[in-house]
Nucleic acid binder design. Sequence first.
DNA 1: CCACGATCCTGCTAGC
DNA 2: TGCTAGCAGGATCGTG
Length: 274
Amino acid sequence: MPELPEVETIRRQLEREVIACRIIKIVIHRPTILLGDSNHLQAQALRSVRRFGKLLVLDFENGYSACVHLKMTGRLTLQSSTESVPIHTHLEFHLQPNKTWNRLTFSDVRRFGYVHILPSAQVESLPFIRSLGKEPLKDLSFQEFQTVVQQTARGIKTVLLDQTKIAGIGNIYACEALWIARVHPLRSSKTLTSSEQQRLFVAIEEVLQEGIARGGASDNTYRDLLGEKGNYQQFFKVYGRNGEPCVRCESPIERMVIGGRGTWFCPTCQQDTQ
DNA sequence: CCACGATCCTGCTAGC
DNA sequence: TGCTAGCAGGATCGTG
């Protein structure tokens, strides 16, 4: 499930590989995942690639943009003309010049993701982007993090996953950061001590940084622009490790459900539920 | 304001 | 072996 590090990995690859390439043909297999008019991208070259939280924005030379949300199983993939179009491909952008690949495809098994084409000038007015909180590694200072955390009595994990409070953190990185900081996922946010806030802030930056450095986490479905897996899953301390010994204290990792999502934590290292 | 549940969707897997 | 129920979850929306 692509979170900030996975989406950032793809953003960097798009920047490296696809900038200045021109769309010469668009094939729509499933119109329902497409918002806006794809004709606006016809014959347009890619100029820049931005990211807002987990949302990718591809900007084209004529002032139109394609906003791509991968949600859980969405993928952007570069493919060669000799490869057959994989199942669940909803959109194909045929590109020039011909490199080792000549198509950028959007696929999504579960069809939660979407591609939204609109004028670049309107991108930052999108409700989703307007509602986003600040971003770790970018503009979220410790003071601002502290304010967010002190604002609410909700469980700290719920707060970390709230994109309107902090942008980009998903289930994997939330679980991992809480383990590193030794904070229980259900801990009431506003009760965190300043040293816990400090540890958590640093842990969030650490897991996201490390996630990017490892090309993201391919727990199940994530693949990068070239179809490759990331490596960060090899460094998971808690995520999906139900019953395995904690690498810090050897207690078996436990699983609970918070907000309908699987949550893994060490019952010894992460105590103080409150 | 907040919590909770349903919704969207398909593939995988545990269990019978 | 083959079927099925349950699970995976980002974001949104409705209800209490």
